[in-house]
Amino acid sequence: MADRKKMALIASKGTLDWAYPPFILASTAAALDMEVKIFFTFYGLTLLKKKITAKVAPQTNPAMPMKLPFGPEFVQGLNIPLPNVLMGNIPGFETAATILMKETFKKKGVATVEELRSICIESGVELISCQMTMDVFGFSTNDFIEGITVGGAATFLDFAAGADIQLFI
C-alpha cells in the first residue's frame, strides 16, 4: 500500500442536503483504499457536533424536488411546487421538509449522515476542524465528536498539495 491515492475535501456547508456529499465521497474513497482527510470550516463545522442537527431549507434551494415519501406511487411521483413566499413563512416548514428528506433517503436505502460519518471514522478518514472558524463561531472541541484534529488552512494545504483529488464542498 505504498502508493495509496489521496483525497482532500473541504466541507463548508452545514445543511442536511450538503452534509451528504463529503461523507459519501470520503467513506467511498476509503473503501477504494484511498487516504482521506476532510477539512471542516464555516458551517461545515456543525457536521462535527456530537449530534448532527442539520436541516434542509427548501426556500433557498429553488430546484429542490418536493416529493412525498409515502402514499400511492403516483402521489410519490408528483413534484409539489410551493412558492418561496409560502415556504419561508409557514412555521415548521423546514422541520417538515427535513423529516421528509430523511424519510425519503431511508426508504431508498441510503445511510444516514451519522452512519456515514461513523463509517468515515472507522475507516480512518481524518476529520480536521478549522481552528479559526471554531473561534469565530464559538465552538470548542468539547462540542465535537472525539478523535478529530484541529488545524488551519496550512494543515489542509499541506495534505492537499500531495493529494490526487481535492474538492471544495
Binding site: T28, L32, G109, V110, I119
Partner: peptide, 14 residues
C-alpha cells in the same frame, strides 16, 4: 439488496 450508494461498496471493502 435494497442498499443505495455508497453502502454496497463500503460493505464489500469491509
Amino acid at each position: 439488496r435494497g442498499l443505495s450508494c455508497p453502502l454496497p461498496v463500503i460493505k464489500t471493502f469491509k
